[in-house]
Design a protein around this nucleic acid. Structure first.
Lengths: 230, 230
DNA sequence: GCACATTTGTGCGTATGTATG
DNA sequence: GCATACATACGCACAAATGTG
């Protein structure tokens, strides 16, 4: 089997109780431990690096990785581009649909419990969005921060990583295809502002409507981009 | 940069418009095209294989992969085990929480549109569950099929893959930790049956309640397992 | 700044395993 | 069985990056 050595290295990490950030044995030591050649060790490490299970630093050593969702973003990006290449724009709307279902469900779970401090922070982010929008600029970083702060109070580390992965796919595909930036930053800022207002009012129906409107905005923007270039 | 050759190979696939299942250039051809050694090509291919972007068949050739969510399942499994190793059972409940939000949102989107034929198929799956449960057996395959058929009518290929990835993580972690199987197959079958009944009645509130109960069952089962062994 | 050891990165040669004709 | 073509695996040598003294 090709993935045998990979599994042995993963098991070695688990057996020795190594934690993310800690140093792995050197390639030479792994050769001795697993009784395989250096090339085989390196191929296994490269595969594990692609999964963010290990992190390799030239001239220093190999660490246990964070097992982030980077590989998910990589895989989905490639998957989308390959399908777009075959004249299929369906893949991107599938990702958008999953993200929408997730966020509309998530926001209802935090509506009663999100601290006022977090809502204040969302307000600040929206203010920055508005400032940039007035100058005709786009604000991908603020957009990213917004959705991260929104679900921070859940204490679920997987949620922001998953959303971030979807977000990355969307923007990387847009970049690779040469699509234009958000054509209406003012509208995007306004839709985020309405989410914050609805949240502050702790108004369930209004929050649902605001989040739904937010995603209609993204959908429109994506379809425009596809028509415009693709 | 380490991932340079990987990106070049990905770009090569996109540039040549290769589709999943099609044959890539041989390693020798890639050496010539990219002007790098065989080892470098192989390490890049191994990394892409880990992401399911290429598929390597010994003695035959390298194909464009399906870009499935296998890497997500691998990464989340490792992530969970590493954190459990550090006395942290939080990671698994995070995954469960995301899956719950997803499924509770998804089921409301198909409630009015799922074809009667699919509901009939769900009924058949539940009947198989009951048969096995009566014999004291567990039914992981039927469980898997149930949630796949449930969302089939959405026409979103990402949904079942994502749910399947989460499902795999859950069961692989359980296996690696030596946790016991479902202690109450009858209860699990009953909860699935109620979902089908609520769906057939197209009763929104009842479906929500049934899905929520279903996840309370999984949660209980997981917590029991953790207490029992971990 | 400099020399040195350690570690990962790259390249090449060769032998072996596997599928096709 | 044999020949061919390909992937797989191993071992060695040297280059490049990093940390230490």
């Amino acid at each position: 089997m090709g993935g045998q050595i990979q599994r042995e290295i993963m098991q070695l990490i688990l057996d020795r109780g190594l934690r993310p950030g800690e140093l792995l044995p050197t390639e030479t030591e792994l050769m001795d431990d697993l009784q395989v050649s250096r090339n085989s060790v390196r191929e296994a490490l490269k595969a594990l690096q692609a999964l963010d299970i290990v992190e390799i630093r030239h001239g220093y050593g190999t660490y246990v990785g964070q097992a982030s969702l980077t590989p998910l973003a990589d895989g989905l990006t490639f998957r989308t581009l390959v399908q777009l290449g075959g004249d299929d724009v369906h893949a991107l709307s599938e990702i958008l649909q999953v993200r929408e279902v997730l966020e509309e469900g998530l926001v209802l779970r935090i509506i009663d419990t999100i601290p006022d401090a977090d809502i204040d922070e969302l307000d600040e982010i929206v203010k920055r969005m508005e400032t940039r929008a007035k100058e005709g600029e786009v604000f991908p970083d603020e957009d990213r921060d917004f959705h991260e702060v929104l679900y921070r109070s859940m204490g679920n580390a997987l949620v922001p990583q998953l959303l971030s992965a979807f977000w990355n796919v969307f923007h990387r595909v847009a970049g690779a295809r040469g699509w234009a930036d958000d054509p209406s930053p003012m509208g995007t800022a306004r839709r985020h502002k309405e989410i914050v207002r609805a949240l502050r009012a702790r108004d369930r129906e209004r929050v649902e409507a605001a989040m739904s409107t937010h995603f209609r905005g993204i959908e429109t923007r994506a379809k425009k981009a596809m028509r415009g270039v693709g």
